[in-house]
Computed example of a mutant assay.
Amino acid sequence: MDTGFDLRQHGGVDVFLRDCPTRAVLELIASKWTMLVLVALEDGRPMRFAELRRRLDGVTPKVLTQTLRALEREGVLTRRVHPTVPPRVEYQLTKIGQEVGGLVQSITDWSQANLAAIQAARKEFDERAACEPPEVTAQERA
């Protein structure tokens, strides 16, 4: 399958290659918790860890910490520690974080706008799948 112009010969990146560094960025951005953190911080207001944890219902402290560290490492957000007792830590999107946050917000808006159609398609598929024998692909036959 032709994936378009091959930038490798020109020193560029090709996301379709296994070792392309862009894949790591896409993997991080595509994470459910990353997307939710980006949307939670998208309004530009700094948030504390506990605020984010309450906002992201179901996230564990460990996963939230890992997500925030990964986003900080990639330059998507900043972590600011205020010299208080106990220390107050706030997270805020950087410029590139705001850019990707806007994209993720668009995906969120699209998801909400199309939820009824998606749920109807899911229901139709499940009903059809319950009545039909599973289709066997050529790969499964081999």
Rank of each mutant, 00 (worst) to 15 (best):
R55H: 09
L77H: 10
M47C: 14
V104P: 11
G12Y: 08
A120L: 12
Q9P: 06
E51R: 12
L103S: 08
W33K: 08
V63G: 01
A40L: 05
T67D: 01
A24C: 10
L26I: 10
R23P: 01
W110T: 12
G12A: 01
Q98G: 07
K62T: 13
L52A: 13
D6G: 04
I107V: 15
R79P: 03
T3G: 04
A116V: 06
R128D: 02
D2N: 15
R8P: 00
R8I: 10
V81S: 02
R8L: 11
L28H: 02
A129Q: 09
A30Y: 15
T94P: 04
T34N: 07
E99H: 09
E51A: 11
D19Y: 12
A113P: 01
D19E: 13
I29E: 00
R141W: 13
F16A: 07
A116L: 03
G75A: 11
G97M: 06
S111I: 07
R69L: 12
S31H: 08
R80D: 12
G75H: 10
T94E: 02
A117M: 02
E42H: 13
P21K: 07
T78Q: 15
E132W: 11
P87N: 04
V81Q: 07
T78D: 14
A50L: 12
D126A: 15
W110G: 09
T78M: 14
L68K: 03
K62N: 05
D2M: 08
T60S: 10
P87C: 00
R18G: 05
R55C: 12
D57T: 15
R18T: 14
M47S: 09
C131G: 10
D19F: 12
L56D: 00
E72S: 06
R45K: 15
K32M: 13
L41I: 07
F125W: 12
V89S: 02
T84N: 05
M35V: 02
G101H: 07
E72K: 09
V59R: 00
E135W: 13
S31Y: 06
T22A: 09
L7D: 08
R54T: 10
C20Y: 06
L52C: 05
F125Q: 07
A24D: 06
Q9V: 09
S111R: 11
P87T: 08
L52S: 03
E135P: 05
M1Q: 05
Q92R: 14
V100C: 10
E27I: 12
V81L: 14
L56N: 01
V76L: 13
R69M: 06
V76I: 13
D126F: 15
A30M: 08
Q112A: 11
R73P: 02
G102N: 08
Q112C: 08
G12K: 11
V39K: 03
V81C: 03
R48C: 08
R79M: 14
L38F: 00
L56H: 01
S31A: 14
M47W: 11
G102H: 07
L103W: 03
L56Y: 02
D19P: 04
I29N: 03
I96D: 02
P83M: 00
P133A: 06
A120N: 04
L41E: 03
I96Y: 04
R8G: 09
P46C: 14
E140Y: 10
E124F: 07
A138W: 12
